[in-house]
Each structure stands twice: as C-alpha cells, then as structure tokens.
C-alpha cells in the first residue's frame, strides 16, 4: 500500500524533472519541476466534455487504464512478474486504442493505429529482455545489453522522443497524445497520471531489476532527457529500424547469457 502511494506521489515528479532538465539544457526558462502536479490538480477539478459520438467505452477507459496501471505495481519484480505486467499494460492499451477510435475523429484513429503498430513490435523486445534477465543471473555484460534493449523499448512505451513527441501540438505527429485528444477534465487527469505511473514503473524496472540499484532512477531520467534533446522524432517507418535495433540488442544479450552460462 505504501508502494502504491509512493508511486502515485512520485510519478508526476519524474515527468516534471525530465521536462525541467530539458528546458534548462536548452537554456530556456520552462515551467517548474512541480508543473505536472498543478496540471493534474487543474484537470481534476475541471468539467468534462465528451464527444457525442462516443460510447460507454470512452467513459470507462480512463478508469480501466488507471486501475490496470496501478495494479501493475503489485507485481513482484521477477521475470514472471514482469510477464504478467506486460499483459496488464496490454489491457490498458487495448482500451485506450478503442477510445481513440471511439470519438469518430481521424486523429484518434491515427493514434490508435500507430500505437498498436509500435507496441506490437516492442512487445517481443521486452519479452526477450525479460527472458535474458531470467537467464543471466551472473553475467553482468549480458544484463547490461538487456538493460539497453529495455531502455530503448521504454522510450517507445512511454512515448518519448525518437518514437513519439510529448511536446508536440501538431496532431499529425502524435501517437499517444492523439488517442487522448478528445479527453478533458477528470478523465484526462487519470490518463495522464496513468502514463506517468507507467513511465515510473518502466524506469524502476530498469533501475531496480537490471542494475539492482534504485538510486539509479535519476540517472535514467537524465538519460531519457538527453536522448530526447539529441534526437529528432523518427518517421513512423523508421521506428521499425529503431525497434529492430533494440531487438538485435535483446537477442545478443540472450546469446551472451547462454554462452556465459
């Protein structure tokens, strides 16, 4: 229960920290580090506008996504727990993609289509990395490679730069944001918080499970910020190469751990 509260409390801070760091490195004066909290508080107290063509799935989705993401926290950080975790995230993604289609807006459909495309490619990478973690108990180099693969997968899963752009205001370049486009008020707050929690969970997996040092969490956040600063968003079909590179890393890590064992 304490874990649950801690994760909910700190998830927006991680997002805020990454944005803050990015703005500082760009020599810009951006919003403060606590801005995500202000955003969430504002969204929570606002009224909601729901598209008139939307069905009950649109209304239900924020709750399903949020509760699925939260219940992911209960799973143990072992390879078995991680496999279960993937299924739970896939439940959240399924409903989010349906909600994107539900509003009859072309952008929502585009977002769902792209999200399903990217996630179906990323899923084998994550599974392979998880298998490598299980295989190589005492092969640090293999674990490091698996960690690199998982880091690239995390960039894709958490809608970060070479795959998706969280800062964009142009709908045609959105992936994750495009699905949330019609959401407002409380539902939007739930979905944003869920996305931040998911990001924190992925960071925690990399920090805790691969490098078995939770204090690495800020390092990973800094790495993400640096990657976001130094890369431009890829075209959707270049993402295939990006994910394929992550896949090659994961396969290499497995081969290394098998040879080392």
């Amino acid at each position: 229960m304490l874990r649950l509260l801690l994760v909910i409390m700190f998830a927006p801070l991680v997002s805020g920290f990454i944005t803050w760091l990015k703005n500082n490195l760009r020599l810009r004066r951006g919003p403060g580090i606590f801005q995500p909290y202000y955003n969430l508080a504002k969204y929570f107290s606002k009224d909601e506008v729901v598209a008139d063509s939307a069905s009950w799935i649109f209304r239900l989705t924020p709750y399903v996504v949020f509760s699925a993401t939260l219940s992911a926290i209960f799973f143990s950080a072992t390879p078995n727990g991680l496999i279960t975790l993937l299924f739970i995230f896939s439940l959240a993604r399924f409903f989010l993609a349906l909600a994107g289609l539900d509003t009859a807006s072309a952008f929502g459909g585009m977002g769902s289509s792209r999200e399903m495309f990217i996630s179906s490619l990323v899923e084998p990478v994550v599974i392979l990395a998880v298998f490598c973690l299980g295989l190589s108990v005492n092969a640090p180099s293999a674990v490091f490679l698996a960690g690199a693969a998982l880091f690239l997968a995390t960039l894709a899963e958490t809608a970060r730069m070479p795959v998706d752009n969280q800062e964009t205001h142009l709908e045609l370049t959105m992936v994750h944001e495009a699905m949330l486009l019609e959401y407002s008020g409380r539902s939007l707050a739930l979905l944003e918080l869920a996305a931040q929690i998911k990001q924190l969970i992925f960071f925690l997996i990399i920090a805790g499970l691969i490098f078995s040092n939770l204090f690495l969490l800020p390092v990973i956040a800094i790495l993400v910020a640096l990657v976001e600063l130094s890369m431009a968003k890829m075209r959707l079909f270049r993402v295939v190469d990006f994910v394929a590179f992550a896949g090659v890393l994961a396969v290499l890590s497995i081969i290394m751990s098998v040879l080392g064992a």
Binding site: L86, S90, R93, F94, A97, L98, L101, D102, G109, S112, S113, M116, F117, S119, S120, L121, V122, E123, P124, V126, I127, L128, F131, C132, L135, G247, A250, V251, I254
Partner: peptide, 23 residues
C-alpha cells in the same frame, strides 16, 4: 527464448487486429 519472442509478436499483432475489428 525465440519461441517466446515470436509468441509475443503474434499476441501483439492479435491485439492490434482485434482493436481494429471491434473499433
């Protein structure tokens, strides 16, 4: 390991397929 990877890819594609079918 590769079987698991293939299974994960298949299941990802299945989810995409049924999001499309239902949506």
């Amino acid at each position: 390991c590769f079987c698991a990877g293939a299974l994960a890819l298949t299941s990802g594609l299945a989810v995409a397929c049924f999001v499309k079918a239902f949506g």
